[in-house]
Simulated scan of single mutants.
Amino acid sequence: MPRTTSNVDWEVEAKFDAPDDQLWRWLQRGGQLGPYTVRSKGDAWLRSVYLDTAEWSLLRSGVALRIRSYGAKRRWELTAKWAGRLAGQVHERPEKTVLLDKRPRLPLRQLPPEMVPHLAAVVAGRPLHPVLATHVRRSCFGVYVQPGKRRREVLELAFDRVAVGSGNGKRVLRYREVELELRGGTRRDLRRIAEALRKQFALRPTIASKFERGLRAVYARVPKFVGMERRGARGRHLAAALARLRGEDAAVRLGLEENKLGQLLGCLKNTALLFMRRSGGSFVDPPFALIEALARAQTLLEIAGKTRTKRGSKSCGEACRAEAQRLVDGALNSAAYYTLLVKFERQAQRGGVPRPKKPTRGNG
């Protein structure tokens, strides 16, 4: 989950497997579901490509990153989704979507500025390659409630026909899926509608996303989606330390403040020390230059804070803050910092990466 959710959205939905098209035919006719009215909103083709580093860093950190094209004019968007929480049939997870002005070239070598605070410390400057592709024919329906004369959409229902392929586009899995995503309604509306549809059309609740289902169809040895894990306490300590460092990095990138920078600086020192101890001192050199730059920036922020209330010192404080920002930007976007993060990651996760399954007769 991202370090802060102040500038990300939350997706609240219920998901089901559909055994056949019976529900789709019923939805096409429209009608009533208790106090709710169902109306068609049209069909769309969604083409998605999921991306990750060669080490599968996003997957191991609980992030699904996809590029999607949709609509007759082939609009493009980049969406990051984090592992969230599950309460009964209702899934809640943070997501962030950025609209793209053109089709991105792959592998993706630069994140949009809006994504950088959340993903930079995980991607660490590495190219992002296609690992999975999905093609979805989506039939959308609005589910409305009518209090008096005012119609209000409580959720959107999507009936998806999904085809999953590997990064090179070969189809290996097809299935039907129903998504109920909350719009203007409440979680009570979502639970009531989900339960009514489940009983009437023999739908099977599912907790796996299209990304997770696709990975397990295409690859063997898929790591757990919700974070880097290794057997034994040693691996868990290293993974937890790296997760904290990435979280403090994101907090600083989202808004430079003296206390946030102090937490990042302390976390960087402690993480480097932990990794050196675990590796007998031979794993990584102390990041003295990075620590020095961040410490200097922290001092400048402290000076800027003290001069804020003094008459005639405003320009001095602004200059100190600008220099602190320059130092932090330089440190957090440096090759040395990204190299350090990659070394931490490799030591924390170890193990192999997913490998494509051997083709079997009848797949696709």
Rank of each mutant, 00 (worst) to 15 (best):
T4I: 14
W10Y: 12
K15P: 03
L23A: 00
Y36I: 07
R47L: 14
R47S: 14
V49Q: 09
L51G: 03
W56E: 07
L58Q: 09
V63W: 03
I67C: 14
R68P: 09
S69E: 15
S69A: 15
G71F: 11
W76F: 14
T79C: 13
G84Y: 12
H91K: 14
E92S: 13
V98F: 07
L100S: 12
L108R: 03
P117R: 02
H118V: 02
A121E: 01
R126L: 13
V136Y: 01
R137F: 10
R138Q: 07
S139Q: 10
V143M: 10
Q146A: 14
P147T: 07
G148R: 06
R151N: 11
R151C: 12
R151A: 13
A158S: 09
A158D: 06
A163Y: 05
K170H: 05
R171Y: 02
R174D: 10
R183K: 15
R192A: 15
T206M: 09
A220G: 13
V226D: 15
G227A: 06
R231W: 05
L238E: 04
A239T: 01
A243M: 06
R246F: 02
D249R: 01
R253L: 10
E257Y: 07
L261W: 06
L265N: 02
L265D: 00
I291M: 11
E292F: 15
A304F: 04
R326H: 10
L327K: 03
D329A: 07
N333K: 10
T339E: 15
K343C: 11
G352D: 07
K358A: 15
P359H: 04
P359A: 08
G364E: 12
